[in-house]
Design a protein around this nucleic acid. Structure first.
Lengths: 115, 115
DNA sequence: TCCTCGTTTCGAGGATCATGGAAATGTCAG
DNA sequence: CTGACATTTCCATGATCCTCGAAACGAGGA
């Protein structure tokens, strides 16, 4: 992942409504949600929500698909994991982070992915 | 982690210089780096760097410690992992994300942590 | 104490972003 | 074709953020 891509993703997530929206889609899973249902769940005006959905889409964090009259949105798990991996890249200079077990786990996980 | 905290962290990371800075500290590990050394490595004016370091510090992503005349900065791995966990919370609605192996891994990792 | 070095704060200018109503677009049923 | 519905685009307003030189601050060394 390039820095530009990561910044786009982080900028997209660094906003109250968009963070809630993305997490909603992450938890919704493969089924996804229609724009209207999301607006309902979040209590955001349609025009605002559309703006935020477009931002997340442009950042590659969500994908849209037509289904009858509705647009279904889904979280892009690959992009999400790519961002996470980018953040913890070469974590801890190979020192194992001392007492921080969580960091060791994420580091190991990344190595497993690239192997 | 609360939404406000996560947004603060994401906002802090959603900026070219700060993202590079944070990743530099993540890779530097426990040893950390002095403000001057960071400014040198990134080619950013001192005043700008100080501004960005303050943002990361206020977001809880880095910690500072005096050492003689220099201020040593270190990445806060606990905060980093907290943010990651917040993002992937209840990932995939327990569906295993279909073909997306990476997501399954992160989901499993999170469950392991909270167990 | 005086001076130097490392770092932070101040301040103004330019750039980017969020909001939400109204109008436009696209999709389908009758 | 017409009407109804779901969603997006347009647009102006207000708010927030980034930059960096200059000045201020704080900690040692002589």
């Amino acid at each position: 992942m390039e820095a530009t891509t990561a910044i786009a993703a982080l900028s997209a997530l660094a906003q109250e409504h968009r963070l809630a929206l993305f997490r909603l889609l992450v938890q919704a899973g493969e089924e996804g949600m229609a724009a209207g249902a999301i607006a309902d769940a979040l209590g955001v005006p349609n025009s605002s929500l559309s703006f935020h959905l477009a931002q997340l889409n442009r950042a590659g964090l969500v994908r849209q698909e037509r289904q009858h009259r509705s647009l279904i949105y889904r979280a892009d798990y690959a992009a999400m994991n790519g961002l996470v991996s980018y953040l913890i890249e070469n974590c801890c200079a190979g020192a194992g982070c001392g007492a921080d077990q969580a960091c060791v786990e994420t580091d190991a996980r990344q190595k497993r992915k690239s192997a």
